[in-house]
Nucleic acid binder design. Sequence first.
RNA 1: GGGGGAAUGUCCCGAGCGGCAAAGGGGGCGGACUGUAAAUCCGCUGGCAUAGCCUUCGCAGGUUCGAGUCCUGCUUCCCCCA
Length: 425
Amino acid sequence: MSETDIAAFKPKSDFIRVMQERGYIHQCSDLEALDKAAGEGVITAYVGYDATASSLHIGSLISIMMMRRMQQTGHRPLPLMGGGTTKVGDPSDKDSQRPLLTNEQIATNIAGIKTVFDRFLRFDDSATGAFIEDNARWLDKLGYVDFLREYGVHFTINRMLTFDSVKRRLEREQPLTFLEFNYMLMQATDFLELNRLYGASLQMGGSDQWGNIINGVELIRRMDGKQAFALTTPLLTTASGAKMGKTVSGAVWLNADLMSPYDYWQFWRNTEDADVGRFLKLFTDLPLDEIARLEALQGADINEAKKVLADEATALLHGDDAARAARATSEQAFAGNALEADLPTVHVLDFVFGGGFSNTQVAIAAGFAPSNTAARKLIGNGGLRINGEKQDDPEKLVDPAQLSADKTFVVSSGKKKLIIKVGRD
RNA sequence: GGGGGAAUGUCCCGAGCGGCAAAGGGGGCGGACUGUAAAUCCGCUGGCAUAGCCUUCGCAGGUUCGAGUCCUGCUUCCCCCA
């Protein structure tokens, strides 16, 4: 079903209607039938997460929100941890094979990832209560020959070679190991297994997972003669085309130990104008009419909408208190009168300073530049400020008169800002 | 087993007649403009005691005044034949 069909489709079920009007649907294997099934009873849907890191990042958030919507509209989400598939490695979206993770690493990663789901989903014994499964449970005990006879017969090499993930590797002349080549079979068996165990009839995922998901749908049809569904979300990019989820410091992680609630709040606060409405629909629970009002704001006013987006998204992940604190911190920081006590402090020994502390040395001490050469270049570009004053001479020494009463001065470069304190205490 | 290609600035892609600190992108960083946005423009993106010196082109040798560039061997990867 093409995208235009999806836009024109008139859903009867709450689930599909919400998914559609909030912009979660990219492709669906049989939207009409899925809509009908969702209208008749509780659907169990799963989304798989491989345990390649100790936390999920923002790329997974859209699928987590989908599961949240499911529960809100009376269905049952089932996050699947890829304890088994992670040992193999998904060839999608990667140029080359990752180093293989050990069982211990995988177990650690799964523990880290699980903590996030509690925030978004309700786990209980009710008909729509979520629960977490791990595909290591069935994949680990499959014998090789059994695996080949049971599932291998349903897949042709001819077709596997047509998949994007495979084609891309071959075209770029990057190796694709036989191990990875099996990933799609394993994901297909996951779907079959979950369908048999829990009646999971829908698998959701990012658009890059379409091929893998469809394999599962077909496997269920071939082996059990039952219909199952595939539903994928659009790949999230910003309005200017960049892949979403990158910041100066790298990936946007969901776990607080990898990215603080404040940084998470800032990430959303810095959303591009053109993305605000779309993100509000996808990543907050706000009603659509409220979102329509917010995204209609023009010019600088749209910053208000961004703050709402940041508040809501942060509250969902880290809780109301953390969101409020993040907002307060940011308002202080950007009001211009940032509390200097909150800035990181670097200490410099008295005698070093007494010996003459040049701007170049300041830039290095502050961590703005890794070498003298780099520091000189940075300063030459006007990239160093002391107490707000732009410095342009790399050799100029810091004037003791610039020190405040407690022997500190503030240095900044771009967004980076910190305090240098002379002496130790 | 035979034949043919490839490996470049440690972020990535990528040009490179024997004089090369090495073109060009992307990304990143800084600056200007702004609304903590986007777009745009400018600068930087080996090191140092900076008119100079030192260290870089898969690894190890060799030829040469001089090698990323030529030769030999090795490693890894791709392609074709068997």
